[in-house]
Each structure stands twice: as C-alpha cells, then as structure tokens.
Nucleic acid binder design. Structure first.
Lengths: 233, 233
DNA sequence: CCGACAGTTCGGTGCCGGCCTAACCGACCG
DNA sequence: CGGTCGGTTAGGCCGGCACCGAACTGTCGG
C-alpha cells in the first residue's frame, strides 16, 4: 500500500475522465439514458472510429455499461454508483466563471437550474425544494446518514409509489446538487419519485436537454405555492 | 453551458490527477504537511527538474499552494476544500484488491486503518468512533447537514479547545472515511480535536506515515474502554 | 570567496494517445 | 439481392507531455 502504487491507481482512474471527448460523453450520459455510439460521436464532434475507441476504454474501465442490439451499440453509465461518482466530481471540480451572453443561453441555463433530471432523479431548485419539504414534514431522517421515516414510507404508499427491484441500492441517498450546492434526494426513492412525476405529467422534459418543465401539479409532492411559482419561468 | 465546454473543464481538471507522479504527490500531501520539492522527487522517483514542472502545473491549477523559504520550495494542498476533493476522489476511485503479503505490510495497514490523520483531522476507526461517540452524547446535530449543538460547544470549552482563526471554514464537516466508509469529523472542529489530541499526547504519530498510536488517554474524548481496546494492536 | 545544495531553465528524446481516412463486417430494408 | 447504415479494424499522422542531463541561479555555511 505504498503511496506510489496508490498514485498509479488514482491516476489510471482519473485518466478516464482526463480527455475532453470522454468527459463530454460521461456528462451527457448523466441524463441516465442509453446513447448510441454515433449519437455520442456527433455530440462530441469526433469521427465514429474515434468514439468507438473511447467507448471501449470507458467500458473496459468499468465506468460504462453497453448493450448491443442489432447493429446498434447502446452505452450508458455502469450504474447508480458510477453516476454518483461523475456527478460528485462535476460538482466538486472548480468552476470557471461561465459567461452566458446570448438570451437563449441564459434562459436555457435558468431552466436547467430550476428543474432537471440528474441521472434518474430530480435535481435543481426543484430537487432541493422537494428534499426540504420532505424533511420538514418528517418524511426523512437525517440523524444517521439519511433514511426514510415510517411516515415517509406511508407517504410513498399514498402516492401509489412502489420501489421496484433495487438490488442492494440504498432506498434513499443524498446527492449534492450541482447548481444549488445543497443536497437533493437520490437512491431508489429519488428514482421512483422522478419517474412518478414524469408519468403523472407533473413535470415534462424540455426537448434537447435534461431540463424539466414544472406544472402546478407538483403540489402533490407537498410543495408550497410560493416555491412552485419560483420553479416556473 | 454546452455539454462540450463542460467536458473541457472537467477533463482539464481531471488531467491534473491523471499522471502517476502528480497523483502520488497529491496523495502524499494528504498528510497536511508541507513538503519540499526534493522530498517529493525522491518519493515519486523522478528527477528534480521533472518534479519542478509537475509542481508548477499543480500550483497553477490551484490544487497546491506554495511557500518559498530561502532556497526551499515548500508545497502543500491549497486548502481544506482541496484536501476534501482529493480525499473524496481517492475514496471513490474503485479499489483494486490490494494484496498485502508481507507481515510488516499487514501490520502497517492495520495501524493505518485503526487510527491516522487525514489532512488535519482524525480518521480511521478512531475518527469514526469519535464521531459516533459525539453523536451519541448529543454533541452533534445531523438534522441539517451537520452542526455542533450547544452541548457540543460547551464540551469543547471544557476540554479547553478554542477554534483559532477559521476564515469562512465550516466549524464542523463530515468527511467519508476511506477505510471505514462511514463519516468522521472534519472542519475546524475536526482539526482542533486532532491537534489537541496530539498536543496532549493522547495519540502520537508513528514515524514514516500518517498512522497514529492510540493511548488510553483518548477516553478523555468520551470513548468507551471496549472501543479503545479495539484501537490498539 | 568557495563549495555544497535547492531549485529552475533549456534543449532534446521518446513515447503514448487522440484523431483521421479508408477499408471492412454485419444488420436491416426494399 | 444490392443499397444503406451502424460500427469496427487497420494504418498512419501529429502533438503533447513526461522524462532526463547539463548548465544556470540563488541561498546558505564555513
């Protein structure tokens, strides 16, 4: 366990993200969807052979998981833990001041900050507000890590939410929000809440990104009207 | 805020750690001390010109801070936040199964797991046990992030611990323990507790690493005898 | 002053890795 | 079956960068 061999491992791991193309891919994959190789090539503005090599590297490194279907190679983050890892890093990495000049860029960024998906759960002001509301109503217990209280479980039942097959995944996990810098809800419950909200139409995807449009129905989540107003343009 | 430019930033940041030599340096610096360039060159087994370039890169990148004194160039982690970042990454990076074969390696690793410093605070079983004990006695409040309760502040006073000049640093912060995978206490309080324990001789450095020798006096921290016995060889 | 020592600058070398084009394989589709 | 399209393989190019030795700057101690 010399510092040197440790260094080797840390470095070889960091190298996976130390390339602009690969980093772009991983960031894109944070939307939780499976992308095809060509889609990613177009996104990262490189040729298909190039993206192919990068994907090999990331899959071999265990960061990505792939599914071959016919002539397509679908690739996605290896799992929730991997997603958390990328998320965390992106949140930690010192952010250079980003200048949003054009009007459309500004509104886009605002929408992103208001509400979006983060891998498979809700994030942005919406995600943080949801976590706050749940805490306030005694649905979450933060005393030791973070857990769902009995009231929390009952609440999920009321909403008709069932946690489907989570193999060993923690029911609820906190995840540092990239824009808010405060925790929001991840884990199996986070995923279930997100898919429920989408299924019920409480939030809908804004095409071309991870940003979400928030409807008044999110009050079903126990959010106050004032909060909800802030989540809308 | 395109995914592409984000990728650039994440990548350029990750590149700092994507070299075995630089990673080794950062890991070594986790002990919180300031090292000279030559020491690091010897540790990483590279020439002095080479280490000089690496240090330039890390300092420019904001990961390291340097102090020039006479003909020496002392370098250390830029700050607590940077240390947390490296720590976090090292904890997250998938660990290959490390085989400790020799007897001395085993006992070394055990000592490291039992008690050590982590940047400027206590870690290992000791760190986690301390956090547990403080929580149990109502000195810490985990309901919103983590804070010191009034009882906690009083306890610090009793021990004669004063928090010196912490410019904007959170009083108490939780930090994921690399070996235990459970939180221990960092932040200004963590640093104060650590330096107090060292000053009082409750723990002492085992030469040649970050590992600590634990004496019975740590009961002053409110640890049970059973716990303390586990912390000793 | 004159060595000894810490660190840097400079030039040069070698290699690795990211990228491309061209050619190929295999799946799907009329 | 022939065309199209997604993906991979092969080969070659280029740039960057990690490294070193040698020479230089600057500091400290006799």
């Amino acid at each position: 366990m010399s510092t040197q061999t440790e260094g080797q491992e840390l470095a070889s791991w960091a190298r996976m993200l130390a390339d602009a193309t690969r980093a772009t891919v991983c960031l894109a994959l944070l939307d939780g969807r499976a992308w095809t190789a060509t889609e990613l090539a177009r996104l990262a503005k490189v040729s298909r052979p190039t993206i192919s090599e990068h994907l090999n590297l990331l899959v071999d490194g265990g960061l990505l998981r792939e599914v071959r279907q016919g002539r397509h190679r679908y690739v996605q983050l290896a799992g929730p833990d991997t997603a958390e890892l990328i998320e965390g890093l992106a949140a930690l990495a010192p952010r250079r001041t980003e200048v949003a000049n054009s009007l459309s860029a500004v509104s886009k960024r605002d929408a992103f900050a208001r509400a979006r998906t983060c891998y498979d759960h809700l994030a942005g002001k919406l995600g943080v507000a949801l976590a706050d509301a749940m805490t306030e109503r005694g649905l979450l217990d933060w005393s030791d890590g973070i857990t769902l209280t009995p009231e929390g479980s009952a609440w999920l039942d009321d909403l008709g939410i069932v946690l489907e097959g989570r193999n060993g995944r923690p029911a609820v996990r906190s995840c540092l929000d990239v824009t808010e810098r405060r925790p929001h809800i991840a884990g199996a419950v986070g995923a279930a809440l997100c898919s429920h909200a989408l299924r019920e139409g409480w939030v809908t995807h804004i095409p071309g990104g991870r940003a979400l449009k928030v409807t008044g129905s999110v009050r079903e989540f126990g959010l106050g009207v004032g909060v909800i107003r802030e989540l809308q343009p």
